[in-house]
Design a binder for these strands. Structure first.
Lengths: 352, 352
DNA sequence: CTGAAAGCGCTTACAG
DNA sequence: CTGAAAGCGCTTACAG
């Protein structure tokens, strides 16, 4: 009778009790209260074996799937985590997103992606949007948000940030050693005998870009070479920028036998510029990149580059978030940089 | 008094009435009922100007943002749409996802991405997951789900599918003319004088792959050339596959002066294989790809390829979804294929 | 161990 | 045009 005589409208009932099975239906089928079903679902309290069995059977039989929307409202947890990235189609961040997705998925969480387009204002908007959607936590992949904005956000939500070292409660940061990576890349060129090494710099608005330039200079200095500003040309981290930067270098008639690009995308642009000028890689000019994008393995020639573990970064960030959500304190850190030797570098032609 | 004497627990109240502003608070501040606030928010009914003003002011003053989770539960709409894609980091689909994201975002909807990994079983899981999350509709980008599964899904949710022609109520499909694209690519090679044109085929489990092969054959036949199975080698749509397929072709000692790869990723692999065998592009072998990935513009040499408008595809799919959600019937269709001429093709060396 | 009840923050018939 | 009330499908103190 209880069900039959429901006095008011019920969307589900009105269309013939079709529609998704609800927890109440499970409770009724199992002959227990909704509270008990909920407890079993959430492992919130111990429940007698017979009730548990009855409920589990009812769930299986009815094909019940809890409604995350209702759970979110009632329990305050949506089992979703926001991810602010720069662009969903970035060859670098895309891989990181996959790492996040895979890790979250295994734990029953869903990612909610939002793209900041390399722009602090939009990134802030992403965070607002994600909070409005009541995500349980937010992962911020790099980006240009001020540290203070991040700290502030962490006051109401667990936050994990990559690309900077930041200490704050409720906030975990993960950083790749860009300095060391760049130093390694430059050192490799030096060891091969190169002395005139051009540097295609990234976008100076990114801390990464600055760190990589520092690494380049440190390696030079360690080898007793002096830094020559005429050999560095900014390429904004993209292909066109790398192409233009290299054109500029070539037109300036600076001599160089090797070139270190602060990311693979610029290396690809540089490669094309050299080609346009009839220069061979690595015979005439050696190239080292940074990131080790999937595509770099098949570029022409396959690119020597600093491996940045994007997928692992995504995984680690997601794992850290999961731990925070569990009340644990994450302690992970990024693996150290590692140079991947391929075919774009060799000793300079001895024409000195 | 009403607020102060609330008899029961209230999470928000207990932490000092902090936390997000609720609709009730807005109603109270504006001196109207919650119903009225809701109506204004949703444009559900006409409301007198003075009340509207009072409410709008209260909203602005309190910085109220409606809780989508509550909206979802109460109204049955979550303002989110599920997107099942193959891999979040695919160079092709990534761009399509950006098109979806941009379009949805403008309309106040959020995308929920789920990756099927080129696998019908996982795609089905994605759909389940998205339905469990109560998305308002689902966009399926290509994939291997059976038509029947899709039709079935459309019975409970608006669905837009790309990569196939499918008629069903509540379902809109969008298809690129793969046949014509492949025909165009092959025709171009033919016009340049090539007669022995190898074909790196895609994964035969994808309808796209079959269509592209059909286009290749059709162009050959139109030119009076007979199809030679020894000249086709499957490459599974990825770089490694393209590389291996080309190696096989080369080892089989089949002669060919041009090569058409059923996607750009395989073209890149093919390019590398040719390089390993000391063959120049386009001097020794011309290459045409398919897709026109962002990267293809900067490959060595820049790749001649069939432009497939991934971003527009994402946009169109999202727009169609938005229209269905509005009760309209979408009528969009994909732009026709277009060949982008770059530097990887030229007339064969006259050594016949 | 377990149930009844209230509540999460909205929406939407229903009845003026 | 507008409000009171019930409900969306869960969770969680509270009281056995």
């Amino acid at each position: 009778m209880a069900t039959a005589s429901r006095p008011t409208r019920s969307r589900a009932t009105s269309r013939g009790s079709t529609g998704p099975v609800t927890l109440d239906q499970v409770a009724q089928a199992a002959g227990v209260s909704p509270s008990t079903v909920s407890r079993i679902l959430n492992g919130t309290a111990s429940v007698s074996d017979d009730k548990r069995q009855a409920v589990e059977q009812a769930i299986a039989q009815l094909g019940f799937v809890p409604n995350p929307v209702a759970r979110g409202l009632a329990g305050g947890r949506t089992l979703s985590v926001g991810v602010v990235t720069q662009a969903i189609d970035s060859p670098f961040y895309g891989v990181a997103l996959r790492g996040v997705e895979d890790t979250l998925d295994q734990a029953g969480y869903s990612p909610l992606f939002a793209s900041g387009h390399w722009n602090a204002v939009e990134e802030a908007r992403c965070i607002e949007l994600l909070r409005a959607r009541r995500v349980d936590g937010i992962i911020v992949l790099d980006g240009r948000l001020a540290d203070s904005a991040l700290r502030n956000c962490a006051r109401s939500l667990p936050l994990v940030v990559t690309g900077r070292k930041l200490k704050a409660t409720n906030l975990f940061s993960l950083q790749f050693d860009n300095f060391e990576g760049a130093r390694l890349a430059t050192e490799h060129l030096l060891e091969q005998g190169h002395r005139r090494i051009a540097f295609i710099a990234g976008d100076a608005a990114h801390p990464d870009a600055l760190e990589r330039e520092r690494g380049y200079r440190a390696a030079l200095e360690a080898a007793g070479l002096s830094f020559d500003a005429a050999l560095v040309s900014p390429g904004l981290f993209h292909e066109e920028g790398g192409l233009a930067a290299t054109e500029r270098l070539l037109e300036s008639r600076q001599r160089f036998t090797a070139l270190f690009a602060a990311n693979d995308q610029m290396a690809v642009g540089a490669r094309l510029a050299l080609h346009r000028h009839g220069l061979q890689v690595p015979q005439d000019v050696s190239i080292v990149g940074f990131d080790d994008l999937l595509a770099s393995r098949h570029s022409l020639p396959p690119l020597t580059t600093v491996h940045q573990p994007a997928y692992e970064m995504g995984q680690l960030a997601a794992q850290a978030m999961l731990q925070m959500l569990n009340g644990e304190r994450p302690i992970a850190s990024m693996p150290p940089p590692r140079l991947v030797l391929r075919e774009s570098t060799q000793a300079p032609a001895s024409r000195a």
